[in-house]
Simulated assay, not measured.
Amino acid sequence: MLVDTISSIGEVTTADHDIITVINSIHTLIDDIGQYPTGETKGELKLKVPIGNAMAPCVDGSAPFQIATLEEDEEDNVFDWNSAVVHIDSVQDMIDFLKQNGDVRALGWKYWYTAAAFMKRISNGRYCATVNGFIGVALNEVKGGDKICVFQGAVVPFVVRPASASTYRFVGECYIHGIMYGETSEIEGVRRRELILE
């Protein structure tokens, strides 16, 4: 299904900046958007987008993006990211964070580590926005005009680039907040079609 088109991209990526700078740039770009299609607030977007809306912290540095799994009896107790997020906008903010007790620091590191692992999985990800007002993280190589699609049976969207009037080039996986896990069926204008990849 062709879902949307990338309209703009952020300039800051993990290829040339630290994760704190990348997340702060995403927060600044989120400040500039209007009403989000899912109805979520800007605060919710700032919390969820940098970690790919992970349900639990990343647990294994050797895996590209392995999150903790929830046991059956824990499924209703999703990890409380609000208690883990730490806003660091300056050196002083970092100093203040490092002065916190060990439990507070441990929670904060879970957020930053999960965000770093997520950005690494998206291959030096960068912020992107779509024509229909969605935002997310796409590969560093993404360009305006690239198409967001969901392949049959896939739970995550991908980026393809028009190569000719009838063919596309595969660019790679992306995270678009609000169109993951089958949510595409609720988006107006989504059309199912056969894509020919070069």
Rank of each mutant, 00 (worst) to 15 (best):
K46Y: 03
Q152A: 02
V155H: 10
E194Q: 12
I19R: 00
D103W: 07
S90Q: 13
D73R: 05
F151Y: 07
A15W: 13
T69L: 09
I33V: 13
E72Q: 12
E141N: 02
I9T: 03
L29C: 01
A154P: 07
V171Y: 09
D18L: 00
D93P: 02
Y113I: 13
K143Y: 01
P50H: 08
V85N: 13
T28I: 05
A117H: 07
K143I: 10
G189D: 03
D146E: 12
I9G: 04
I88V: 10
G172T: 06
I19H: 04
A116Y: 00
V59R: 02
E188P: 02
I176W: 09
F97H: 10
I95E: 14
C149L: 10
P37C: 05
C58Y: 13
I148V: 15
I148G: 09
L45N: 14
M180D: 05
K143N: 11
S166H: 00
R105H: 06
A138W: 08
D16M: 07
I196K: 13
D89S: 12
G10I: 13
I135R: 12
N24G: 01
L107W: 05
D73Y: 12
I9Q: 00
F151P: 02
D18Y: 02
E186K: 15
D32K: 12
T14H: 09
V142F: 02
A129D: 15
W109G: 03
Q66C: 00
T114Q: 06
V22S: 10
V150A: 11
G153A: 07
V142M: 04
G145Q: 14
H177C: 07
Y111I: 04
S62T: 15
F79P: 04
I122T: 01
D31W: 03
K99Y: 08
K46M: 08
L29R: 15
I51E: 04
D76L: 12
I187E: 14
K110Q: 12
T114C: 01
E40D: 07
E72C: 08
L195R: 11
I6Y: 11
V86Q: 00
A117E: 05
H27T: 14
F65Y: 13
S123F: 11
G144F: 03
G125A: 11
E141A: 14
E74F: 07
G172Y: 04
N77Q: 13
E72D: 15
T114M: 06
I196A: 03
G102A: 10
L47V: 09
A165H: 03
W109F: 11
V3W: 09
I122D: 02
V150N: 06
K42I: 10
N101M: 08
L47M: 13
E173P: 06
D4I: 14
V3E: 14
V49E: 02
Y111T: 03
T5Y: 05
Y36A: 04
E75V: 15
D103P: 03
N24T: 11
L70K: 03
G43T: 15
D146K: 09
V142R: 10
L139N: 11
I33K: 10
F151C: 05
Y127A: 11
G153I: 05
G102Y: 03
S8P: 01
L197H: 01
G39R: 13
S166V: 02
S83V: 06
E186F: 11
G145D: 10
N24C: 08
